[in-house]
């Protein structure tokens, strides 16, 4: 279901973290806990924060939209570490969505939803979906430049 070979696989692996989790918030929290342990303490705070944030967004989208919150359904998650980068792959059994249209949307300043895509754009080095839109592959380069550099009106 997950085609990690379509990405540039890290040449050096720190070991994969993979699981099929129930489509529930509790399972998301449990996997994120495992992810924090898997990351260890070697990464900078910025990289640890960014990678967990990207993972959370992918998992929440899969659970809430792909599985419509049904805990009977399962979400497949794989995290792979390598030289200077982290790859996250999340797949759900849902029908997928029109990710080309979704990625083009920019949320209004006062919108209370829709910022997950902005997080992907700001924190990921590269994201890809499968054709159906029910699998996402996220590549995050470590030691990325500051996001705030492009922000104005500080």
């Amino acid at each position: 279901m997950i085609h990690v070979e379509t990405m540039n696989a890290p040449s050096q692996r720190a070991g994969d973290l993979s699981a099929s989790i129930a489509a529930s918030q509790e399972a998301i929290e449990a996997f994120c806990w495992d992810f924090q342990q898997w990351l260890g303490t070697e990464l900078s705070s910025r990289d640890a924060f960014a990678s967990e944030l990207l993972l959370r967004e992918a998992l929440v989208n899969a659970v809430e939209h792909g599985c419509a919150g049904s805990p009977d359904l399962m979400v497949r998650c794989v995290v792979r570490g390598g030289k200077g980068r982290i790859l996250i792959a999340v797949s759900d059994p849902g029908p997928g969505f029109d990710w080309t249209r979704r990625l083009a949307l920019v949320p209004e300043a006062t919108a209370t939803s829709g910022r997950g895509v902005s997080i992907y754009k700001n924190y990921a080095t590269r994201i890809r979906f499968n054709k159906a839109g029910n699998s996402i592959f996220i590549l995050m380069q470590l030691n990325r430049p500051s996001l705030a550099a492009g922000a104005t009106n500080d």
């Binding site: 705070s45 910025r46 924060f49 960014a50 944030l53 300043a109 006062t110 910022r115 902005s118 997080i119 700001n122 500051s146 996001l147 705030a148 492009g150 922000a151 009106n153 500080d154």
Partner: peptide, 17 residues
């Protein structure tokens, strides 16, 4: 806010509001 959360807020322009 931690530095990471501050960076998130700024990148999302939350700090402008």
């Amino acid at each position: 806010c931690s530095a990471d959360i501050l960076e998130l807020f700024r990148s999302m322009r939350i700090h402008q509001h």
